[in-house]
């Protein structure tokens, strides 16, 4: 592995994104609009529905977006022959994976910073914990999404197939993460399943930051990082230097 190559991969991915103005605009603006829509839905209602749901949404958005973006981008690398070319060069698989993680982590940081600013400054999201913690969770979440997207791209032959993995892998996590039904109230089997899914811990961490002045999210973050590492290792296994 080499820092030079990792940084070159990250810089290249960012340059490609910069070229694609529409994708860039959607990456940065869309999360803000979704948060604003959520706020609007609750404006005429009593209670603090927005405060309860917004942190979860801030965890979900970077995960979903980066999952999609990475699975399609790496699928393109696989089908266009650029990945094969890179693997025939002195490029470590780790350079490739970390380069992507770094680039999309940065994008996620910008994306979440905007969304969090909109939520806390303009939409009065009441937050007990520090804002920077929300950002840390969002970035780790995005990298997790990237790592998973990279892994599943190995099982898709077309971009159509790659996009279909989103509902397959992400929807169950959204349903079970505690957003719709409190996890304590789920049937015990489903509660068990939810504990085995990474997004549960991301939403958990976000809610802790929203509800506690001194949130302890280290355990949640550790689980997210562990899932990310596992997905990256699995992703590395799908990068084959020799194919049929």
């Amino acid at each position: 592995m080499s820092l030079r190559i990792t940084l070159a991969v990250a810089a290249r991915v960012l340059t490609q994104l910069r070229r694609d103005h529409r994708t860039l605009a959607m990456l940065l603006v869309l999360p803000c609009l979704v948060i604003a829509l959520l706020w609007w839905m609750f404006t005429d209602l009593p209670g603090r529905g927005f405060d309860a749901l917004a942190p979860a949404l801030l965890a979900l958005i970077p995960f979903i977006v980066m999952f999609l973006v990475t699975s399609v981008t790496t699928l393109r690398e696989r089908t266009s022959g650029t990945l094969e070319r890179l693997l025939a060069m002195p490029l470590g698989k780790g350079d490739f994976l970390l380069g992507y993680a770094l680039a999309f982590g940065l994008v996620a940081a910008a994306q979440s910073a905007l969304a969090v600013t909109v939520a806390t400054v303009f939409l009065d999201l009441s937050l007990e914990g520090p804002v920077w913690m929300l950002l840390v969770v969002a970035v780790l979440d995005a990298i997790l999404g990237s790592a998973l997207g990279l892994f599943v791209s190995a099982f898709a032959r077309t971009e159509f197939q790659a996009v279909q993995f989103m509902p397959a892998l992400v929807f169950p996590q959204i349903l079970l993460c505690g957003l719709f039904v409190d996890r304590d109230l789920l049937p015990s089997f489903l509660d068990g399943v939810s504990r085995a899914l990474p997004l549960t811990y991301a939403v958990d961490a976000m809610s802790s930051v929203a509800d506690h002045a001194h949130p302890s999210i280290a355990a949640d973050l550790l689980v997210i990082v562990a899932f990310t590492a596992a997905a990256l290792v699995l992703g590395a296994l799908t990068l084959r230097r020799q194919t049929d």
Binding site: A8, R12, R19, S80, R85, M89
Partner: peptide, 27 residues
Amino acid sequence: GYVTQAPSVYDDLTVAENLTFFAAVLG
């Protein structure tokens, strides 16, 4: 040095950006 039949370069980068990237990988 290997050139596949279908050009394996990044369509969304400029010619110079493509070469700069691969040159960085090769060192």
